[in-house]
Structures are given as C-alpha cells and as structure tokens.
Design a binder for these strands. Structure first.
Lengths: 110, 110
DNA sequence: ACGTGGTACTCCGCATTGTGGAGTAGTGTG
DNA sequence: CACACTACTCCACAATGCGGAGTACCACGT
C-alpha cells in the first residue's frame, strides 16, 4: 500500500526524460543516475521498458555504441518530441505534486 | 503518456487518507474534496474502490448514515492503523516528490 | 405523470505499467 | 574456472485507476 513501485507509475517516464535531458544515456547508466537522484527502488527492467516505450512513442533517438568495459550499449537521447513531452509532463507533475503537498499540509494550516 | 490517471497510481490512497484526516467522509464527498484540492481528474469509481480497499486493509472504520438529500451514505473514517499508514505514506511521498523535483530542476542548477 | 439532473453507490472488464526471474553475453579478477 | 559487474531482453504477473452500465433515491420543471 503506497509502495514506491506504485508511486512510480507514470512518473518513471518523466524521471527518465529528465535524466536524458542532461545528456544521452544507455539503460544501465540511466538506472544509476535515477538511483543517485534518490529513486533507489527503481528496478532495471522498468527502466529498460520505459526507454523502449518512449522510443516507440517517438520521443527518443537511439544508437548503438561499443564499450570497452562490457557489452554494447544502446544509447538514447531526447529529440524535439521528447523535449516537448518533458516540458508538458513537468507542468503536469508540478500541478499534481503541488496539489498533493497542499493536501498533506492542510491540517497544519488550519 | 504521463497522464494524470497514471500519476495517481499509488498516490490516491495517500490523497484519500489525507482528506479523511480532516474529518469523516463518504465516497461522493471525498471525491468532491479531492477535486477541490486540485485533483480534478479523479474518477468516481477510483475513489469508491480506494475506500473499499483501505477499509479491507483495516485502515478505515465505516458506518452508514441516512441522508435527506438522496440515498444513504457510507461514511469512512481513519482509525489508528489509518493514521499510521498516513504518516508513513506521507514520509514516502515527501522523499519521492523531493527527489523528483530536484531531478527536474537539476539542469537549471547546473 | 414524466423526464431530467444531481446524489450515492456497486460491479465488471480493460489497459497501463512496474517487477521479479530467467536467460544471454562480454569483460576483468581472484 | 568461478564469480562479479556490466548490459540488455523477454515473459508472466500483480496492482490499480477508469469507463460503462446498472440501481436507487430525491427534487424540480413541464
């Protein structure tokens, strides 16, 4: 009940877009950046799935790049659609998070 | 993609608990209070479902009360478990929302 | 008398999406 | 050679919000 996995619903898209705004990244890297940002409970499969979904939706570009420290890496980056989606989603999040925070504080204000 | 219906996942429990903290309420009333608080897109079925779920989980008390303006009303109220759940969930939300907000602001800070 | 609209709730099936587990594969280390 | 870390894929599952249909009660207008 009110687990992080449920809180993530819908917001993971936004988090991934935000991370990619700061530079192209591949799945494993995006995962590490999200966890470093405070989203410790994100599962790897969720990130890979989200990247695939956003790519299929036309919000991301994608290209392979070999690595010297392991397997190939599939890089993703924001395109114009992705940046617009990020902007719209950020607004929605701000409205939503603002409403929630106000709701949680209401008692103290009274 | 990043619709409010997805943002609500998991958070609706918290929103309903917060609304009930300010006084017992019945489904239709909780719905109106949530919408007044800024969560305009909440569907009625979601609220009724959430109330039933929280009650089944032992976080709410429930009692019927007749109304003079329509059908009977099923009131719900927080019990001790509900208040504790609300406290824990609020902490989780604060951590989560804080991380997200920081993530969304990261670029401006750089 | 009848339809309409607001109130109040229930049930059903669906769609979305995050997750765990298993599997594949490359690299470096003890 | 086993193990750990990197890197990704696929699958079946579970949770949950939603739309739609249905029930019912009340008040108001015509």
């Amino acid at each position: 009940m009110v687990e992080t996995s449920q809180l993530l619903k819908g917001v993971l898209d936004l988090a991934v877009l935000a991370v990619l705004r700061d530079g192209d990244g591949y799945g494993y890297d995006v995962l590490r950046r999200l966890r470093a940002a405070g989203l410790e409970d994100v599962a790897d499969a969720s990130v890979y799935g989200t990247l695939r979904r956003l790519y299929a939706a036309g919000a991301l570009t994608s290209y392979m790049q070999p690595s010297e420290e392991g397997p190939h890496r599939k890089y993703y980056g924001l395109n114009q659609d992705g940046r617009e989606l990020l902007a719209r989603s950020t607004q929605m999040w701000n409205h939503f998070a603002g409403s929630m925070s106000a709701l949680l504080l209401a008692k103290e204000a009274a």
